[in-house]
Nucleic acid binder design. Sequence first.
DNA 1: TCCTTGTCTCGATATCTGTCGAATCAGTCT
DNA 2: AGACTGATTCGACAGATATCGAGACAAGGA
Lengths: 105, 105
Amino acid sequence: MTAVETACAPSGSPISGEDAARLAPVFKALGDPVRLRMASMIASRPELCVCEITPAFDLSSGTISHHLKILREAGLVDCERRGTFVYYSIRPAGLRSLSALLDLD
Amino acid sequence: MTAVETACAPSGSPISGEDAARLAPVFKALGDPVRLRMASMIASRPELCVCEITPAFDLSSGTISHHLKILREAGLVDCERRGTFVYYSIRPAGLRSLSALLDLD
DNA sequence: TCCTTGTCTCGATATCTGTCGAATCAGTCT
DNA sequence: AGACTGATTCGACAGATATCGAGACAAGGA
């Protein structure tokens, strides 16, 4: 029995409008199939070069950058440039905020 | 240390395009502040009448219905009509699919 | 049967989003 | 410095989305 199910008994209190406004963009960032798969790819390794992400999708490099930016702004990933290449990695804190909510509501 | 963090070492394999296509709409459903708060309100009780949800938002009843429909179609909530009123409740399975992903990637 | 109340559906509309391609920026190599 | 490659930004546009308000539907009460 997961915490989610435990919570489906009378359970905890609903989140505030402010918390909703803060957390919704994070869910939204994962609410696109391309970004969800990107995030999953990045999370499956210590870090991942954009040049490894791009060929996994049938999309222009402009579009790839756009999606990565949304993941970044949602606090889900970090990036670091080393030379010509840019490497993305997962930000555990971003995922934790979602996980915490799902395990409590 | 959460499973998420554990996973941020070399960790599990990325999800498939099909899984991404299946799960993204669920994240997307929670990716709107209004719906996230609605879902949270519904989850915080065994069930909740639409007539209790509506006044919590400064939105028309048409818009409220629209958002509830999206939560329903994402498999996150169930509804049942009793007399004039419609009661919404959380579907644990919907939340579990998200939770499982977050704890593994 | 009609009226009222709660909920949903539909049509219209303004805004947001995903995508491309071109231009730009950042680094490396010659 | 100039050329090349990887990545981001920008401008444009088609399609999706959130919202409203009006109408339809459902159930109960006068």
